[in-house]
């Protein structure tokens, strides 16, 4: 990491994503909506910050993991925090989220994702944690999300004893 990159990383690390006035913070919401443990939620936010640093310092397009993408999606909902406090005041640049345009881009995103993992290892001098940044394999499946109202449905996990 160059001194400029380190400076930016320090700023990103010190950026507080939680609203101090709120009793239901960004972290609370992220944890609740994804049913993650608190430790996993805090680590996911940290990995999101790392991903954003990679976006800022790399000319190539970077691609997040599904976990990091969930953090990003939620942060985009907090428009004042994301666009003003984070992008304008902290990063001094805008980072747009580009959703996939379809199946034809699958190969492109896979390539970008592998590139992101490479850049991650180079910049942070460590391998990205497997539970948040899984290595794509031939058998790996994309998440199959669907929005469910828990007032109307019970949810029974297929792996009841595995907790993220």
């Amino acid at each position: 990491m160059t001194p400029e990159q380190q400076k930016l990383w320090d700023k990103i690390q010190h950026f507080e994503i939680n609203d101090s006035d709120s009793s239901y913070t960004f972290s609370d919401r992220l944890r609740y909506e994804n049913q993650w443990s608190i430790a996993f939620t805090l680590r996911a936010i940290q990995e999101y910050k790392k991903f954003i640093l990679l976006c800022c310092i790399t000319d190539d397009s970077m691609s997040p993991s599904h976990v990091v993408d969930e953090v990003w999606h939620l942060h985009l909902l907090y428009t004042r925090s994301y666009w003003t406090e984070f992008c304008s005041d902290t990063l001094n640049q805008t980072i747009h989220h580009g959703p996939t345009k379809g199946i034809e881009e699958k190969k492109k995103f896979e390539h970008q994702y592998l590139l992101t993992l490479e850049r991650y290892q180079y910049i942070f001098e460590q391998v990205a944690p497997e539970d948040i940044w899984p290595m794509p394999t031939a058998s790996s499946k994309s998440p199959n999300y669907v929005k469910i109202d828990r007032n109307d449905y019970w949810i029974i996990p297929k792996k009841p004893f595995k907790k993220s």
Binding site: Q13, H14, N18, A39, L42, R43, Q46, P129
Partner: peptide
Amino acid sequence: QVYHMNPELRIL
């Protein structure tokens, strides 16, 4: 435990 996974974490 969480700091062993991410030593740079700043936790409220």
